[in-house]
């Protein structure tokens, strides 16, 4: 029983080494996921706020280019 198959076809193998775009990560990490009630509420749980703020982040991160 393996998660991501180790023997995935060569056609998709190069994808593994590609850097993950933050925006793709956001789609997934800020989706609900399995929710169990944690006892400590992290501010990160405020998803909308995170989304809005990340625009500012990206803008600021890109600026030097």
């Amino acid at each position: 029983m393996s998660g991501l198959a180790r023997g995935v076809r060569p056609t998709v193998e190069p994808l593994r080494s590609r850097p993950v775009a933050l925006v793709d990560l956001l789609d997934r990490l800020l989706a609900k996921g399995v929710v169990v009630a944690g006892e400590v509420t992290l501010t990160i749980a405020d998803v909308d706020l995170v989304h809005v703020s990340l625009r500012a982040l990206i803008t600021s991160v890109r600026r030097p280019e």
Partner: peptide, 13 residues
């Protein structure tokens, strides 16, 4: 990469 896994929501503490 090695096992079937269920990711938890970000920030579950």
């Amino acid at each position: 990469g090695t096992a079937a896994v269920v990711p938890l929501r970000l920030g579950t503490v």
